[in-house]
């Protein structure tokens, strides 16, 4: 079961995913608690024009810089729009997502390799990750974890009690921007290697699944990281075996995501059981918005 990973590209793929597991565990907990699923999904789309422009200007080297700029621009725009209150938050996110992505499509649609560009953006090139890219991811991982640790207490305070945090002197808008930027950095770190499909899943599913097992945030983060590691190992192995033994082309990104989702589905009844077990006397709380079905 270890043998396929002795092949260099498989080993590098696993190393890349392990690094992402380290950052996505904790970050996904914040995404979960602040209900930023849609923002995460939006960021994976809005870095696309950055990737395209970066590539057109600086070749392969320019991609990360371009994505970084697009990610930060999105984070700022989203923070401004959602604190402005002209539109409902979710509508602003949807509009920013579609508009930025379309700018990328307009730029790329004038190139001949249009469809293959988009495809690699979706799936990434996890099996062709270079040692240099793994090193870049490692650097970004350290930076992201550092930024997160520095501000974790304030971010958690703001999550559970925005009014209290504001009263205690925290600038809520700045904290929101900060978290959006951290999510953007994760997207940038991951998107080239693993593609948008996998990034969205890494940011949303681990914490949602871990929530079924615990309500303590650090434990959730650790379980999330563990789940990603398991899914990465299992997914890469499955896609290797599928293509080597059966000749089926199972994309590794899809395999990893599907394993993560499977874990979520398997843990779902466990969460329901836990809840029934420690139900308190308090009446259930309403939704934050009277008719918010989701999000």
């Amino acid at each position: 079961m270890i043998e396929p990973f002795t092949v260099p590209f498989m080993g590098r793929a696993l190393a890349e995913l392990a690094l992402l597991a380290l950052i996505c565990g904790p970050v996904s907990v914040l995404v979960f608690a602040r209900r930023l699923s849609f923002v995460s999904d939006a960021l994976t789309h809005t870095v696309f024009p950055g990737v395209v422009i970066g590539f057109l200007v600086g070749g392969t080297e320019g991609i990360v810089v371009g994505a970084l700029i697009a990610g930060v621009v999105t984070a700022v725009v989203l923070t401004l729009l959602t604190s402005g209150g002209t539109l409902p938050d979710d509508a602003s996110i949807a509009v920013v997502l579609t508009a930025m992505f379309s700018i990328g499509v307009v730029l790329v649609s004038r190139r001949s390799s249009y469809t293959s560009d988009l495809t690699s953006f979706l799936f990434g090139r996890i099996l062709t990750v270079t040692p240099r890219q793994v090193a870049e991811t490692a650097v970004l991982a350290v930076v992201i974890l550092g930024l997160l640790l520095m501000t974790a207490r304030a971010l958690i305070f703001r999550t559970f009690d925005p009014v209290g945090a504001a009263a205690a002197g925290f600038r809520i808008a700045w904290l929101d921007l900060w978290l959006n930027i951290i999510v953007a950095l994760v997207v940038v770190a991951a998107v080239r290697a693993v593609g948008t499909i996998l990034v969205v899943a890494l940011l949303i599913v681990p914490a949602a699944a871990a929530r079924m097992l615990t309500d303590r945030l650090p434990v959730m983060a650790a379980i999330g990281t563990g789940l990603i590691l398991l899914a990465a190992y299992g997914g890469l192995l499955a896609s290797w075996n599928a293509s080597v033994d059966y000749g089926v082309s199972l994309t590794s990104a899809s395999a990893v995501v599907l394993l993560l989702v499977l874990a979520y589905l398997l843990l779902l009844p466990l969460g329901a059981l836990r809840l029934r077990h420690r139900r308190t006397r308090t009446a259930p709380q309403g939704r934050t918005s009277p008719h918010e079905l989701v999000g």
């Binding site: 139900r279 308190t280 009446a283 259930p284």
Partner: peptide
């Protein structure tokens, strides 16, 4: 009366 079998 109550929710989820727990009286309010």
């Amino acid at each position: 009366v109550g929710y989820h079998g727990t009286p309010v």
